[in-house]
């Protein structure tokens, strides 16, 4: 069963399209990473799925319903981001209790234990917390609510690296114990890579890739060697990325669908073939130019 289904989903503010004709499905009980650069439209997409924003055209379904302003979707979805607003009049402890009164699957015991572990002060107010502490608190709510659809938009922003690791571990354990559909957005794939089952990569409001994390790791290969040899080899092949890496040396990234013969050719040309990490693939696929940042400096 698909929890989220989007068909030609488009969102525009005035004339600028923030989400452009996006189509994808998210299957039940998978952790999907929504990866994209800042401003790619991750947050907008997530807010449409969470039912906070209207979409402009196309179709979006969450639990087979239009999520906008939908009570059923709201009851089964939790959206965690760092703009989450909580009443300034209630202490953290009171907020946890309130959250517990809303969500049917809420695990208060878990919430309290996480609360203790991350040494939050129950008498403190949300607005007085540091950014990292706020993220931690929001994430605790996100985990303990056990919503069938849990959306976390950059949940670890502001957390220190120890807390991040702890949080991701907690997320994984919670997921294993109580499987649910999780969408985790991040601009850093590295950090969440191991947790994910699928990756949805978006670039400037458009879907770039949607595949399993393992396929993503095999998605491309890199070739390194003398510039003219690299040029010769990639002559008829579409490159994802091409970069000068030193005096007369180049590095090219292409899709991993070359025939054995082509790879043999590369060997003959003295090129070194490497695998490309998922993080790098995402970064190359979402960069504006094929040459990456180096391109900016190559005016020759």
């Amino acid at each position: 069963m698909n929890v989220v289904v989007c068909n030609n989903l488009t969102k525009q503010y005035g004339r600028s399209k923030v989400i452009h004709s996006m189509s994808f499905q998210l299957a039940e009980n998978k952790i999907t990473g929504l990866i994209g650069r800042n401003g790619a439209g991750k947050t907008t997409l997530l807010k449409i799925i969470a039912g906070y924003l209207h979409h402009s055209s196309g179709d979006v379904q969450v639990f087979s319903e239009n999520p906008f302003n939908n009570l059923k979707v709201s009851a089964n979805t939790i959206f965690i981001d760092n703009e989450m607003s909580f009443s300034q009049g209630l202490t953290l402890k009171e907020l946890l209790e309130t959250a517990g009164s809303f969500y049917q699957n809420w695990d208060h015991d878990l919430a309290l234990r996480l609360f203790d572990y991350f040494s939050l002060d129950p008498k403190q107010f949300h607005g007085n917390l540091s950014k990292g502490m706020q993220s931690t608190f929001n994430s605790i709510i996100g985990l303990a609510a056990r919503c069938p659809l849990t959306i976390m938009d950059e949940p670890t922003s502001g957390m220190d690296s120890g807390t991040r690791k702890d949080f991701y571990r907690a997320l994984l354990k919670e997921y294993i114990a109580h499987p649910r559909t999780i969408i985790l957005s991040s601009h850093l794939l590295d950090e969440v890579e191991d947790l994910l089952e699928d990756v949805l990569l978006i670039k400037s409001g458009e879907k770039c890739l949607h595949l399993s994390i393992d396929s993503l790791r095999d998605y491309a290969i890199g070739v390194r060697g003398k510039t003219e040899k690299v040029q010769e080899w990639i002559d008829r092949i579409e490159t994802i990325h091409l970069q000068d890496i030193g005096a007369n040396l180049s590095y090219a990234v292409v899709k991993n669908d070359r025939s054995i013969k082509e790879l043999e050719d590369a060997r003959q040309l003295g090129l070194e073939i490497t695998s490309v990490s998922a993080e790098d693939i995402c970064s190359y696929l979402t960069s504006k130019t094929k040459g990456g940042i180096d391109h900016v400096f190559n005016r020759g």
């Binding site: 302003n69 939908n70 709201s74 909580f86 309130t98 959250a99």
Partner: peptide, 12 residues
């Protein structure tokens, strides 16, 4: 500030 408080929890 007040309106968004609701939407941290279940509502429409």
């Amino acid at each position: 500030a007040y309106r968004y408080d609701d939407f941290s929890f279940i509502t429409n």
